[in-house]
Design a binder for these strands. Structure first.
Lengths: 206, 206
DNA sequence: CCGCAAGATTGCAATCAGTGCAGAAATGCG
DNA sequence: CGCATTTCTGCACTGATTGCAATCTTGCGG
């Protein structure tokens, strides 16, 4: 990677750090793009060369997470189900230390009292759902208008959301209780699929 | 209701209609609040007395839907499960004609090519999820940190989303295929719950 | 080392959403 | 009709976001 790209990456980090520091101190709304630019030693106009909107700074790590989940689902060994891959992914994600996402705590606080940011997050989680849904659909054998993959994906993301620790300092890696909850979640998904399978068998028999 | 409130309601409608007409013609972004105000014969400043943001016009009917679902869940007869109530609600909602939501088609088009609006919708659907989750939790007997209600709610909303006809002119009320899908969806939810119950029984037995 | 082409940064001007405020206009009531 | 309450407007201002054109940097070939 050339010096050019390294420098750009570094500037991006600088902007993120400056932004999150200010968001933490003053809140999202009370921090202007001009403030962030000043704190990061760039021209206000330059900010938009790095992030399309102020909101996008808050979700800067999302692209990587998305790519990482996509890779995990795509590159799983034959025989490993989407559920298995997902389970591992969730465990790994929750186990990650503050290094992986140094802004998580601040972000959670921002999301808690800013509707617009919460909306943005819902949307991004929706992208996760799409990814999972596709993988599940592939596992189940594609059918037109099949609701199952979508429901499974939605439920899985709901579980992921709920397992996300609210506070970075607490239970990381997933403790026994968390692990038990995760297994319950997957039992729910398996059970749902099984329930349907049974219902279909009965229907075609009757 | 006094003349005052009737007139206000009428103005609100006028604004909505004007806005949707313009959104339809030019798109959401290309329509300014000033345009809407002009089309509705009000001062631009007045617009914000009716809607907090331009986006909110697009989701003007949501409050009613939310209240209606809340009422359906709250006022169901004893013995009627959340699932039953939800099933009826979904059928009724899909069956509604264009009168109930005259802007649905335009809204769907807007949502399809505007990320910010899609985000907003995800967020609102999240509120639905919360509502359903609470009701399911009550049915299931409250437990701390129970993932089940959230997963069920998420899956239910996913089903609702999927069943929402893309085009108002088509299949309304829900046709046989739609009904079958809906029943499959609920079979999924029942199966998921059952799977968990079984697992818990096994766990406590072993 | 020099100079050029590509890419990055910046300043400027404009558009548009959203907000606080104060005055003007309309309405409901007695 | 005259007052108290609401509603509607105009105005001024902050702040996000964008297009454009000028300027600066870097990477590379010679």
């Amino acid at each position: 990677m050339g010096l050019r790209e390294r420098k750009k990456e570094q500037t991006r980090r600088t902007i993120e750090d400056a932004a999150f520091r200010l968001f933490d101190e003053r809140g999202f709304h009370a921090t202007t793009v001009a403030d962030i630019a000043a704190a990061a030693d760039i021209a206000p106009r330059t900010f938009f060369g790095y992030f399309p909107t102020k909101e996008d700074v808050v979700f800067c790590g999302f692209g990587d997470s998305f790519a990482s989940l996509a890779a995990a689902l795509r590159e799983r060994e034959p025989g490993v189900t989407t559920f298995d891959a997902l389970r591992s992914f969730i465990i790994a994600m929750v186990a990650e230390g503050p290094e992986a996402d140094p802004h998580r705590d601040v972000r959670l606080r921002l999301l808690a009292d800013n509707e617009a940011l919460a909306s943005h997050e819902s949307h991004l989680l929706g992208r996760f759902e799409g990814l999972i849904g596709e993988a599940v659909a592939a596992d189940l054998g594609d059918e037109d208008n099949d609701l199952r993959p979508r429901m499974v994906a939605a439920a899985a993301v709901a579980a992921l959301k709920a397992l996300q620790p609210t506070d970075h300092t607490k239970k990381r890696p997933l403790d026994d209780e968390g692990l038990a909850q995760l297994d319950e979640a997957f039992a729910f998904l398996h059970g749902g699929i099984a329930g349907l399978q049974e219902r279909r068998a009965t229907a075609s028999a009757g």
